[in-house]
Design a protein around this nucleic acid. Structure first.
Length: 371
RNA sequence: GGUAUCGGAAGCUGAAC
């Protein structure tokens, strides 16, 4: 049983949940560790529904079982479920609180995250970093900076958090210096540095970082590809794409922008059809690709085909009509939105402006919640 | 049963004026 449990653990760790499940189902007897490793396997592979099922079926649960499920909810941004679980926990240790900080931070509820953080009896570096990440990712970089200064110690991870949110505030030169000062630098940090240069318009530097990295992964290659895309080097992007041995959703999605900008509808369609899995971001990217190449009907068709929409989907469609001066369609899209941000309002304004409907533009402007 | 549980990296919308 010990060996079989280890097998479940191993399969879970390498990402073949299916095999873990197979072994688990074959067991005639299961002990605490069989269940624990199975739960962990589901959590690691983002199978939350399955994890929940395992958790509910387990004959006994330790604090770590609670924490594992809680962490999975937190990382996926399922705030409500995380909250519920947290409240029902028999004990809450530091790891549980850290996960809760993450859960709030990931869903943009920084105040709540801060509250948990402040009320913790003890904190470790992970608590600080979780909150820091919340500030930085939600764009409250000043607050983040303050927190960063207050931290008792810094490590590579919190440095990466700062770097990946920096757009100019943190000087890249300084960042690189401290990067070089770290004795051990992992792939995550290398990739973050690459992306930071790319965001800053320094493609050459980004490439140099890529060459300097001790090893590559699909993520780092995709980061390089994205760097080329954002610099408008579409041919180079194609080359990198062609040379990649394996692809995933993110990589293919990054290429949609290339096809869109080149007006290469054939490749776009083909790549999209061939995708084994699609998520909301990839749907949005196709939509945007059609929009950029001026295929309004295709864009609308894509929008209607999508299994779900978010703010980005709506904004993309709206901007498509706006940029082509179709203020009537734009208004329909605008009215259909469940929620709007500043970008949506601006797009609608520009739709009116482009079609010379100044009265309507002024009216709209005056009804804006915030200008 | 000695890392079973907590923090960080890649892809989608505001082109230019």
């Amino acid at each position: 049983l010990f060996v079989l449990n280890k097998l479940i653990e191993m399969y879970g760790k390498v990402g073949s949940l299916h095999h873990a499940r197979l072994v688990f189902d074959c067991l005639t007897q299961r002990d605490f560790y069989s269940w624990a490793f199975m739960l962990s396997a589901c959590c690691r592979n983002d199978r939350l529904d399955e994890a929940r099922l395992v958790f509910d079926t387990m004959p006994e649960r330790s604090l770590q079982s609670w924490n594992a499920l809680l962490a999975a909810f937190a990382q996926a941004g399922h705030l409500d479920e995380a909250k519920l679980l947290f409240e029902r926990m028999p004990y809450r240790d530091m790891a549980a609180c850290n996960s809760m900080v993450t859960a709030y931070a990931k869903s943009g509820h920084i105040q709540e995250a801060r509250k948990i953080f402040d009320e913790m009896p003890m904190r470790n570096l992970l608590s600080w970093t979780a909150l820091l990440s919340g500030y930085m990712q939600s764009g409250q970089t000043l607050q983040g900076e303050v927190l960063f200064q207050k931290m008792p110690v810094w490590d590579l991870v919190c440095w990466t958090v700062m770097l990946s949110a920096c757009d100019g505030g943190w000087s890249l030169r300084e960042a690189k210096k401290s990067f070089d000062a770290f004795p051990e630098r992992d792939l995550v940090a290398w990739t973050a540095l690459l992306t930071a240069y790319a965001r800053n318009g320094q493609l050459a530097e980004a490439k140099r970082i890529f060459d300097e990295m001790p090893q590559w992964s699909m993520v780092s290659s995709t980061a390089l590809l994205a760097a080329c895309v954002q610099a408008g080097k579409y041919d180079e992007a194609r080359e990198i794409f062609a040379s990649m041995p394996h692809l995933n959703v993110v990589t293919v999605t990054a290429m949609f922008a290339v096809y869109g900008h080149c007006g290469d509808l054939e490749s776009l369609k083909q790549a999209f059809e061939a995708m084994p899995q699609r998520d909301l971001v990839s749907w949005n990217a196709v939509l945007a690709a059609y929009a950029h190449s001026g295929y309004l009907e295709e864009a609308k068709h894509t929008f209607d085909q999508m299994p779900e929409h978010n703010l980005v989907s709506h904004n993309t469609l709206l901007a498509t009509y706006a940029n082509h001066g179709h203020h009537k369609n734009a208004l329909i899209a605008f009215a259909a939105m469940p929620c709007r941000d500043l970008m949506s309002w601006n797009a609608m304004l520009s739709a009116y402006a482009q079609s010379g409907e100044l009265d309507r533009a002024v009216n709209l402007f005056q009804s804006m919640p915030q200008r």
